[in-house]
Structure formats: C-alpha cells, structure tokens
Amino acid sequence: MEVINSIKMQSSLLIRKKGFQISFLLLFAYAMLISVIYAYMQKGSYTTEMIHPAMISGITSDVDYVWFFCRYFPFMAVMPAGFSFINDINTKTSVLLKAQMGEKRYYMGKLVSVFLITFITFTFPFFIELLLNVIIFPFEGTRAATGWEAYSLTYVQYANNHLMSRLFYNNIYIYYIISTALTGIFAGAGAVFTVGISSFGIKYKAFLFLPFYLFIYLAENISKYIISSYTYIDTYITIFDIIEGKSMAYYLTLIVLLMIMGIIFTAINIRRNETR
C-alpha cells in the first residue's frame, strides 16, 4: 500500500515539473501538426481517396516528417522524467522522501513513476490525436498513408510485415492503441535505464542524454551482425511500418534489457549507500 502511495506522490511531483509539461506539449503539438498538414493535403479530394483516420498519426511510419520524431525520440524519452533523481538530490527532496517512506519504497516508487510519466508522455498525445482524427476525417477514406487501399490485396502483402499484423486485420483501432502503447513502453524503459544510470552519481544532467542514445545506436548496429531480423529502431517505434523482417522478440528483448539494467543499477546503488 505504501508503495502505491509513494508512486502516487512521486508521479504527482513529476507532473508538475517543467520537463514533463514541455515534452508533453511538444509531442502534442507535433501530433496536431501532422493532423493539420494532412487535413490540408487532402482538401478537395474524394472521400474514397482519403486516408483512414487511424492511419494519420504522428507515429505512422509513412506519414511525412515522422523521421523528425524518430531522431528526437531518444532525447525526448529522457526529458519528462529522466532527470528526476538528480533533481531530487539537488533540491534535497530525496532525503525527506527517504526518511518518510524508507529507501526501498522511495526507489521503487521512483522507477515506477518515471516509467508511468514517460509512458503517458509518449502515448496520450497520440491517443488524443486518434480521437480527433476520428472526429475530423471521414470513415469512407480507406487508404493507407502510402496511397494504397488499407485492406486491398496489394497492401496486405506489406501489412504482413507489421509488428502485430493479425491485430491490424482484426481491428485497426486496437492495433493503433496497442502499438502506440508499445512505443510508450520502450520510451519508459529508456527512462528507467537513464534513472538507473543517474543513481551512480552522474554530475551533469547533460550526460544523461548519452546512455539511452548510445544504447539504441549500439543495439541496432551490433545486433545487425548477430540476428537475421531488421534491427533499426525507427521501424519499431513507428506504427504501420511495412519494412520486411522485423521481429517482436528483438523489440521485447530490448525493452526487458533496458528495464532490468535500470533496476539492477538502482539496486546496486541502494546497497552501496547502505554499506557506506
């Protein structure tokens, strides 16, 4: 019960921080911008030639400017909650909270709240976008962002390469929600990893941008030579991606690896502080 209180308390602290507010607003603005751009682009075209509302989103892989998002992704994942541990030390909040709720509960609450806040930052803007797109764009529009009919025989050949293609065939909205949530989980895992690194006593906040960035860089390039599936993260964090040879196992392994490393680093530092 007290762990839940700790999570609640630290999450509400994080929500009031500028880092979360700015990154949430940036992503929200980006998502809205994509909708507006596509509303203008499709102005005056027949409803049957329009793109399906669920396939216009800031993280649909065929939408223009999505690689904009992909390049900022590792940096944005750190922004909402990655600095929370260093901030707590700076403002001496950590001493207070540790005394109040105990060290283990503090760290547990910290990791969970960091994960939750980053998850919210990366999913809610796109959920709201889906809601607005469904209202704005007509349901008669059935095309994918590439221009093919979304459920035509031509597109289905490519749709088989989606990460969860069976879900896509059953219900496009559930596919959208679950794959966006997966992106959020990946970002959250990155934030947990960053907080784990920051518990080593990193002195400058700027250095915290490096671990997740380098992790992605090395993971996608080194595993290219080890496993046979496609390893570039851009194709995993975007949805409706039609590049061949992606593997769910690789993606989930990365997520679990990041989480476990974050938790282990934090655990090491709890023990180190106790023995001091």
Partner: peptide
C-alpha cells in the same frame, strides 16, 4: 552520432 556524443561530453567543459 559520434559528434553529438563528443559535444555532450565537452559541452560542460567551461560550464562545470
């Protein structure tokens, strides 16, 4: 990316 990594590390050289 190596450039960005270098910039992050030496971006605090005077600021520190």
């Amino acid at each position: 990316i190596p450039m960005f990594a270098f910039q992050i590390v030496y971006g605090v050289y005077i600021y520190k």
